[in-house]
Simulated assay, not measured.
Amino acid sequence: MIRLSAFADEISPDLNEQIAVLQSENIHYIDLRSVWQVNVLDLSDQQIQDIKQTLTAGGIGVAAVGSPIGKVPIDSSFADHLERFDRAIAVAKALDTQYIRIFSFYAPVKEEAGSSNPAAYRDEVISHLQEMTRRARAAGVQLIHENEKAIYGDTIARNVDLLKSINDEHFRSVLDPANYLQCDQVPYPDAYEATKPWLEYVHVKDVRPDGSMAVAGEGASDWAAILQRLRQDGYDGFIALEPHLAAAGQYQGFSGPDLFRSASQALQTLLRKMDWSYN
């Protein structure tokens, strides 16, 4: 059975408000990205424990750590970033989740805007991701790579290149159709078919042809067809809401309680129409 989750910092910076809205929407999991406007990796050990206890008391489990790992230029200090990555592993362990959302690095700082040649830094990206995958394997966690705009793996071809090159059960793929649309890629069937062998996680947002964000089913992602195909192929993982309806920033988006509820209800309506049970 699929399980619904959410980037609940899209609701509010306040944890209690996040939980209240999730409960009202019958969503039992969270992709923990930030609380109190503090990134999940910058929370103290005590804060992480307090958050875990509060979530558990509210009937909310942690589906994934929504980390910013890999959202740095490829030529920034990898040693420093590995320290941050190790923190992500420790946080995942403390929150009892096996998943850490990551990215595949921006172009080098020296590149001028629009002039980047991804092939020039491909090998370094793969080397960095291989080291992180090795550490994830040793720790017993799984990295899930999001196809975010402007990182190395933002297109279908480069995402598949990463997945094939790393070829490890601890480095898997997030399907984010709206992100593909923002990179002029076709999310379904093209991206779905190409990345299906590594599919581990699904992010739900939608985008209209004019670039504005929309609830699932009102944009160009073809969510009805994607959900039908996921069900046909036996997908039984997490489907996480990340609607970005009010704002979309480099490190997080925001919707607010009312727009988040609209996004939640749109997704759940699609699932009910196809009689796909979820938890």
Rank of each mutant, 00 (worst) to 15 (best):
I89Q: 00
I89F: 03
V91Q: 04
V91Y: 00
A92Y: 01
A94V: 14
D96L: 02
T97E: 03
Q98H: 13
Q98K: 12
Y99S: 01
Y99N: 03
I100H: 05
I100S: 02
I102Y: 03
F103L: 05
S104M: 07
F105L: 12
P108I: 09
V109C: 12
V109K: 15
V109W: 13
K110L: 04
K110C: 07
A113I: 15
A113K: 15
G114S: 10
S115G: 12
N117V: 15
N117E: 15
N117Y: 04
N117I: 15
P118D: 01
A120M: 06
A120G: 05
R122S: 02
D123G: 15
D123P: 15
D123Q: 15
E124C: 07
E124T: 03
V125T: 04
L129D: 02
L129R: 05
M132H: 06
M132I: 10
T133D: 00
T133A: 09
R134N: 13
R135A: 14
A136Y: 00
V141I: 15
Q142E: 13
Q142Y: 05
Q142T: 11
L143S: 09
H145P: 04
H145D: 10
E146L: 02
E148A: 08
A150H: 10
A150G: 04
Y152D: 01
Y152P: 02
G153Q: 05
A157D: 12
A157F: 13
A157H: 14
A157M: 08
A157W: 06
R158F: 08
R158N: 09
R158M: 10
N159Q: 12
N159D: 12
N159C: 03
V160F: 09
D161T: 11
D161Y: 00
L163S: 08
K164P: 09
S165N: 13
D168Q: 10
E169Q: 08
